[in-house]
Design a protein around this nucleic acid. Structure first.
Lengths: 232, 232
DNA sequence: CCTTCCGATTGATAAATGTCAAGGCCACGT
DNA sequence: ACGTGGCCTTGACATTTATCAATCGGAAGG
């Protein structure tokens, strides 16, 4: 197991505070693998054998019930997913699939739990990460319960704009039908929602989006730091 | 600060593993207070000064945006809330109000963070609690995104039935308009949803609910352990 | 160049949900 | 006993969202 492969995760906030010995114990049974796009990495209900870390590419977390399916979030480098299941040694609540070709590090869950018990620095980092994840879901919950689909789309676009650098014109990074699932609506409805935002200062052609009237668009979207800020 | 007041929280999983010294440090600046019903304990956006623990009664966690309001969850004894905000020293994402007369313990957030840094046992317990909270929100998210309002109500009733002991007849524990908010619908719609479940084996009179045909009702609700089990 | 395929879009329609207004029921206090 | 107020329910209606079917358009491959 070449150390080099894990150099990039050694500096993650999650692992930065732990001792070299414990980090070595953590990666001893770990491995890094490259997956093509659209591979299902885990299925909800499976036991949580590995903590996953996205090194490059991106991963879609989704869930199914009664024949329906919904995207819950997207994991981007460099961060972990299903940490909570690993910690609790409980089954996954979500399935995961690669959205594009992705490099994923897999660390055996039992090693995570073992090191977690012996390394206070690591335990602290896990708490911070978990609290972050928790707050993200709460924000998603508020987004879903308090906003109409038009408002959700508008605020999503503002977040995406910021992530893309803040310019008036930027690209959607997901295919639209997945975006629809993330936003909790059907693809058809998303199409109509894009049209519905035109009077509020939006222009769309394909995956290229332009906020033509930033002030009016924000007035409509009413973004809130308690829902839309990724950092807080 | 009488120790007796904190005896009941000493045995909580969250505090069980920590040393007496650290527990004492934690409760030194803490206090227990009894609040009447319908008191707003915290407001979203406030800095997280205290970790709250519900000792008796119950607390509603809710959020507002643009004049709308939605209940996100209910906290019952004995458990904490806004642990994540405390840990990250970040503003509350939700507001909290008492649903009934309640006894609440308040522990200064900075003490929690300090002890957390020095007591590995406590840190571990915090992780477990946080992971639990996280998984609860994910389940709520799945409930909301994958189910119609009728299905959400049906599964809520099954969960409530179990909590009430499993008998065919049981009582709703919330007033219906709050239940509506929890389930993500309007009170009017909840009324109609109750009627819509009658053909599937439900009878309602006031707050008294009877599942008249358990098999048919479950067939309609299709409960899933990955959404409806509180424990996993 | 043409075909094929897949996602996006559009229109028509149905279903679900929200809104508004009115009325019923029940507990409470006078 | 009688108002009174709060909550729940009901009905009519508007809005939102989903569904179904058809079409458009670009990308990949022959």
């Amino acid at each position: 197991m070449p150390d080099s492969a894990f150099g990039e995760i050694r500096d993650l906030p999650l692992f930065a505070a732990m001792t070299d010995v414990n980090f070595a114990a953590l990666v001893r049974g770990a491995y890094v693998q490259t997956f093509p796009a659209q591979i299902e990495l885990i299925a909800e209900g499976d036991p949580s054998d590995f903590l996953h870390i996205v090194l490059s590419g991106s991963v879609d977390l989704f869930a199914s019930w009664n024949g329906r399916e919904a995207s819950l979030s997207t994991v981007r480098p460099i961060s972990t997913f299903i940490l909570a299941a690993t910690v609790r040694d409980a089954p996954y609540l979500m399935s995961a699939r690669t959205l594009e070709k992705s490099r994923i590090a897999l660390i055996p869950s039992q090693d995570v739990r073992a090191v977690f018990d012996s390394d206070a620095g690591f335990a602290r980092a896990v708490v911070t990460e978990l609290a972050q994840c928790y707050r993200s879901v709460v924000k998603a919950q508020k987004d879903l319960k308090l906003r109409t689909s038009l408002e959700r789309l508008a605020n999503y676009l503002l977040r995406q704009q910021r992530r893309a650098g803040g310019a008036a014109t930027f690209e959607l990074e997901h295919e639209k039908r997945r975006l629809a699932s993330v936003l909790g609506m059907t693809p058809e409805n998303l199409s109509r929602a894009f049209k519905g935002l035109q009077p509020h200062g939006l222009a769309v052609e394909g995956a290229r989006v332009t906020i033509t009237d930033q002030a009016e668009f924000r007035r409509f979207a009413r973004p809130s730091p308690l829902i839309d800020d990724a950092t807080t």
